[in-house]
Design a protein around this nucleic acid. Sequence first.
DNA 1: CGGTATCCTAAGGGATACTG
DNA 2: CAGTATCCCTTAGGATACCG
Lengths: 118, 118
Amino acid sequence: MTKLMPYHCPIDAAMHVIEGKWKVLILWELREEARRFGALRRSLPGVSEKVLTQQLRELELDGIVHRRVHETVPPKVEYSLTEDGRSLNDALAPLGAWGARRVLPPDAPAGTAADTAA
Amino acid sequence: MTKLMPYHCPIDAAMHVIEGKWKVLILWELREEARRFGALRRSLPGVSEKVLTQQLRELELDGIVHRRVHETVPPKVEYSLTEDGRSLNDALAPLGAWGARRVLPPDAPAGTAADTAA
DNA sequence: CGGTATCCTAAGGGATACTG
DNA sequence: CAGTATCCCTTAGGATACCG
């Protein structure tokens, strides 16, 4: 990601932007509103400060997220999606739907809610 | 991929299936017709036999590709997409479109080709 | 609060050689 | 032809400590 490459297939170009363990999760977290660094960190259990910063920087370089620094004491930094970030998120939606179908099996078409209880 | 996990967001479930340097390229190569191992290998410059086998096995385990062995001499093995593979490919399409837009900039709407010269 | 700076490991993946 | 079997190396990412 953030690296110039000759892409064999167009999807690969997009793949390089979202490669990184936390990238799509970040995209997902920012889908609706801007979030502060700390809030983001808390909503991504297991991520270290170093790695979160790293992935945010890469997303920023790729023009996916916007970093807004409020020059206050204590510091306050807000991350939000750019226009490109929002369109990327939209492009990711069908993939999410596909994934959802695998996780929770298709289950019954209509009215047969018996097996969704588990 | 092929590993059971609690997914925080549905896209992650799909991401785990296509993680691997060559997976989406394989998907892309198989999008229209079945291919033999050797043909697949030749169309993915740089991939080693070991890794190609590995990624194909994982895709097979995930129910994305089908492996058909023709018991002949010399051996002949054909890989093709399963129903799930095809739907995954479809779900990937918007991402491909998004990627394409970044690689070849949208270019001028109409007649304003001046700044695309660089 | 929101970061850098270091150090370290786990694993994905490349190269090569061998096999049914 | 279509794989295994090894060996090795790079790198993403985790842990921890310190800084403006």
